[in-house]
């Protein structure tokens, strides 16, 4: 049994196009999406060191349309390059939820696959795809820039085919992901992004979007409040006194 024969559960696309030209247009847009990938590298571990050579003159990612971005709002790909500790994972999730979809997560290095050399550590999240929908893993300790670029090409092919839909999975099975997050961070874990409301808004509400864990979230959720600006003006020391 080859790796291609393993059945992969794909979330069905909730959008059904009625326009005959819509299909052509969708394919063209998918082509554009696959040719223009902005990466946000969350450099947690040693894998980050392989990215500069992949971007600069020797391997030049830009010729594939891949370029680094610095803000989650602008990015398409979240690159998690190395082990994620429990503390880091919170930030990774906050970053992920701020990105506009379609968004892709790539786990680089063995540490994101199974904990790697940190598999015994009490403070490290072992499998990234328990907490976030991962599109692609690039295994290795660390993977060479060639492997990183080969992985990017794989992702590009998946986007072009329309099978890189892991981001829908986060909305459709939010309860599952939230449950795993709560197991790690405690019951009171909440993020500023209201994922359920977004799922409702974008018509991505599935059977498993809400469940016992989202009910637990609703119990503990504190409403977000706007930050107030407090200017504490201290008395200026007068020199003339």
């Amino acid at each position: 049994m080859g790796i291609r024969d393993i059945p992969v559960r794909q979330a069905p696309s909730p959008h059904k196009s009625t326009n005959p030209l819509g299909r052509v247009f969708d394919e063209f847009l998918r082509f554009c999406q696959s040719r223009s990938l902005f990466i946000l590298h969350y450099c947690t571990g040693c894998g980050a060191i392989e990215l500069p050579p992949a971007m600069t003159s020797r391997f030049d990612m830009e010729r594939l349309g891949i370029q680094p971005m610095v803000s989650p709002r602008q990015a398409d790909i979240l690159l998690v390059t190395g082990y994620v500790s429990v503390k880091t994972l919170k930030r990774v999730i906050l970053t992920y939820e701020q990105m506009p979809a379609p968004k892709y997560v790539i786990g680089i290095c063995s540490c994101t696959v199974n904990g790697g050399m940190y598999w015994q550590s009490y403070a490290t999240a072992k499998k990234l795809n328990d907490y976030l929908p991962v599109d692609l893993y690039i295994a290795g300790c660390m993977p060479r820039p060639e492997a990183v670029i080969a992985g990017m090409r794989d992702l590009r092919r998946n986007i072009e085919r329309g099978t890189a839909n892991a981001w829908r999975d986060y909305f459709l099975r939010y309860d599952h992901y939230l449950g795993n997050q709560q197991r790690l961070f405690g019951e009171t874990w909440q993020t500023p992004v209201d994922v359920i409301a977004e799922a409702k808004h974008y018509n991505l509400l599935g059977k498993e979007t809400q469940g016992e864990h989202t009910a637990r979230l609703a119990r503990h959720q504190k409403p977000l409040e706007a930050l107030t600006l407090n200017l504490e003006l201290r008395e200026q020391p007068t020199l003339l006194k």
Binding site: C32, Q33, S36, D60, D76, P100, A101, Y202
Partner: peptide, 21 residues
């Protein structure tokens, strides 16, 4: 470096406008 392909600015603009959320 080699740099971006010919239609890269167009891909970028279309991709950004095709964001679903």
């Amino acid at each position: 470096r080699i740099g971006p392909p010919f239609f890269q600015p167009l891909y970028d603009i279309l991709k950004l406008h095709a964001k679903e959320t």
